[in-house]
Design a protein around this nucleic acid. Structure first.
Lengths: 214, 214
DNA sequence: GTATCTTAATGTCAAACAGACAGAAAGGGG
DNA sequence: CCCCTTTCTGTCTGTTTGACATTAAGATAC
């Protein structure tokens, strides 16, 4: 995930989600999310999936006073490795595992927001074609499987995955081309199809730890 | 759904979702949702399900100026038939079909909010125990089926529904009591179980109309 | 050029599941 | 006591799932 290092108090030096305030009264909040992503992280990629995650407005979440944050979940493939040195103070990539485990400390209630975002992504992978937003324009089925395995944190059977993914109508479409790696049989390349809602869904294996309350 | 009639411009006389502004800088937005529900609609029921739906902040959505609304989805059973005459101007129940079809005109972008809310409810019925929030403390399986049929707008087979609902562990628990109607065999009464996430989910029958893009 | 290694693609099979529907159980009313 | 209604319990068939075997198509080593 993309985090910036705070240069001012409060939480100076801690990592935080990129964000900021609305510019003027006429700015749409989605536009503002795009702008902040560009300004704070120099990120202006194509194929950017951006969806509203939720709004966080607990009274004490910002010591400076009342701040209500509308969080957006952004997903994009082929991200520039170290975010290019710009005025964007210190933006950089952090492993989600490091953040979730608490090894990387986040400012404000941003850990909560991050947790919600990951939950959202995990769930949406089942019922929507969101996984293709993690991939490039064309991809192999093994690529897609890696997305599911990484986000869900599980291992999947390649043969069954292959079968199920292709059964969902309109999810992925073959391009007719192939990609050959250094080893092994060349893999057929696919691209995202028109479907956004998966029928049937790709259900993730039931984790043994009981999910309990929400 | 619960709507109030606007007494002031803009949209005077049109129906709108109950809502209002934050009281003071220390008020939590969820608390504000509860308060507005109580103030505008005299609604203060037990067993009230309230979850954040989304935030709407398009520049022109309120002609008076920039207003950002955080929408909450509320669901509760046993609602008072005509909302008792209080200072709550003209609050009343409207059929969702009337609103969705456009027969009942809504102020601002509230039709969009309502549509999103119904979509959310329909989806959550599949994967969460939300349906029990529509029911009383104890209910029969037929009651629960009526919730699913009403919200999804489909007909379900009582025998298959009976089987599937009882297979989900922790969804509903038998109370040991029965309810006898005027006709027919007495039905066993159930109550909501501890589970909030349904495993396996209750998938709704695939509607014939293609869902297309989102 | 052939063996071998690696990954992709296809196939097989038993168990579980889904939808459609039959029938039995348990009440009330003529 | 028969009929009607609603609830509950089965049955049956086709589909899907998860586990695993097998074949296909390249690259590389020898």
């Amino acid at each position: 995930m993309l985090l910036v290092e705070r240069g001012v108090d409060p939480y100076r030096g801690a990592r935080a989600l990129p964000g900021g305030f609305l510019n003027h009264a006429g700015e749409d909040i989605l536009d503002a999310a795009h702008r902040e992503l560009r300004e704070e992280a120099d990120l202006d990629v194509a194929r950017l999936h951006l969806e509203q995650l939720g709004t966080y407005g607990a009274p004490g979440r910002d010591p400076r006073g009342r701040v209500i944050s509308v969080a957006y979940l952004a997903i994009a493939p082929e991200l520039p490795d170290p975010v290019a040195g710009t005025d964007a103070a210190d933006a950089g990539w952090e492993s989600a595992a490091d953040v979730l485990s608490g090894r990387t400390k986040l400012a404000f209630d941003h850990l909560r927001i991050v947790t919600d975002g990951i939950d959202r992504a995990r769930g949406k992978l089942e019922h929507s074609a969101l996984a293709t937003a993690f991939c490039r324009e064309t991809f192999t089925i093994a690529d897609l499987q890696q997305v599911y395995e990484a986000v869900w944190g599980v291992q999947l059977d390649p043969r069954n995955f292959y079968r199920k993914v292709q059964k969902v109508p309109g999810f992925i479409e073959p391009t007719g081309q192939e990609r050959r790696a250094t080893k092994g049989r060349p893999a057929r390349l696919f691209q995202a199809g028109p479907t956004t809602v998966l029928h049937p869904p790709l259900v993730r294996p039931e984790s043994t730890d009981s999910e309990g309350a929400r």
